[in-house]
Nucleic acid binder design. Sequence first.
RNA 1: UGGGCUAUGGCCAAGUGGUUAAGGCAUCGGACUUUGACUCCGAGAUCGGUAGUUCAAAUCUACCUAGCCCAGCCA
Length: 544
Amino acid sequence: MEITSNFIKTIMEEDLKTGKVDTIVTRFPPEPNAYLHIGHARAIITNFELAKQFNGKTNLRFDDTNPVKEDSSFVEAIKKDIEWLGYTPAKILFGSDYFDDSYELAIKLIKKGLAYVCDLNAEEMKEYRGTLTTTGKESPYRNRSIEENLILFEEMKNGRYNDGEKTLRAKIDMSSPNMNMRDPVIYRIIHIEHHNTGNKWCIYPMYDFAHPLQDSFEGVTHSLCSLEYDDHRVLYDWFVEKCEMEHVPHQYEFGRLNITNTIMSKRYLKQLVDEKLVKWYDDPRMPTLAGLRRRGYTRDAIINFILSTGLSRVNSTVSSEMLETSLRNDLNTKVKRVNAVIDPIKVIITNYPENEIEWIDVEYNNDNESFGNRKISFGRELYIEREDFLEEKPNKKWKRLSLGLEVRLMHAYFIKCNEVIYNKDGSVKELHCTYDENTKSGSGFSDRKPNGNIHFVEASTAIPAKINLFEPLLLDSDSKKELVSRLNPNSWQTFNGFVEPSLKNIEILERFQFIRKGYFATDYDSTEKEYIFNRIVELKSSFN
RNA sequence: UGGGCUAUGGCCAAGUGGUUAAGGCAUCGGACUUUGACUCCGAGAUCGGUAGUUCAAAUCUACCUAGCCCAGCCA
């Protein structure tokens, strides 16, 4: 699958055609202050795929210009996620690699009379900036001489001032209707150790200043970012122009991706971790890439999902079903589908001989012929899924077992339910059924149609297994109350179920909640083997 | 009379003046069935509104409406 058509691709094609650029260079610039989530996947995949399609290249650049928020532990996690998605950055860089350069360029701006050191504190600066509907007023420090600015800025760099005491600002236009142009701060004082540059610096460039310059240094041609930076583009261009950058990159904005019933904002994900409502950012219930990976999502499912949602200048909210569909389609070709009964009720086939087991050679129900066959067993005592039985057929759409009705046991025979045995509490204990030996699967029997197909496992040969069901983060409200209440223990439930005999050595399985159109657990000896194996190990330890 | 952006079926999204407005997801109807999966048929929009320009507009213009973003020494 590849990116079919979107406005950025069109721009790139045009730029290539007109010779505006020779090679497409993009970059993915995460701030290393959290784990990547599925929303970031849109930016990652767009940047990498687009460059790939045009034989260009993509850098990974950690945007680490604010040491108070960032941490190198996130750097590794982010690298791992990108690698997992199958992308190899042309270069891996840090914003902090350019601190010397941006310092020099700041001096250049001062010398051109386009930047000044300002003594206003944060509160005063806010006052002077004005509001959305009123213009700002100029700082009293705005017209310091170039010489004075040069000295003060150097003193800032040398640590003579405390945090917040002075800033370096671009001299643009305090009456601009675009707030970003009202003399934005380009350097601030922060006396804190930086995870990359240590204590070398106590002044750090702001995003708006650093970013366009970094893009330029790296030869980025198309700098993609989200819609909220639209207002910043004019500033972006201003810095590139005024700093007289040789290479001129261009910024293009696209809409953010949201998914229904999922929280995606960094703030809430952090809250879940901080309040220990989840174990960590890679908890399988989290919509982070690491969480989805642990949960069994494949890279292709995620990439196909992102590509199928397209890209535009609209912040979109796509249905979570699309994500599930991508996964189901991908798994269907990669992961063998096998029988597992998660919440069993016993079925006795009263007309089947005791102590006899029949082995049936069956195909996997996958879109992958290379999987070959395996054997499943059939006998007098079976387990079926509790939800596959209702005493009375509730409506004509019910395609499962009911009293007096006949269904096909997948790969085996038709059975008819004759009697329901109850527990004392009124719940169903077991079902007494009869089978029709003429109806064996593959025999060509076609005299009558069953009321559906259900799966089963044979009781004596089935392997007991703990089967996990993860409920995804289903949060449709921003309120904290909602956040907490939805994260009940049931969001991670373990059932004592049974799996078919071919699944030896597996004690814990997941039945993906999203494979709801069918009742199969997945056996993981597939292309995702390594991850799956690791996940099972992790899960085991999680439950101890 | 702050500025910017956006508006195509339930959800995404192609379409850049000229066939019956692609496709995916979801839904409904049907066929098939060793999963209600898969597959296969079939169903649904006149393009936020209004007025213009034009032989011809979702595509151009004007006005209107709605939604999102911006007043961090965050990114």
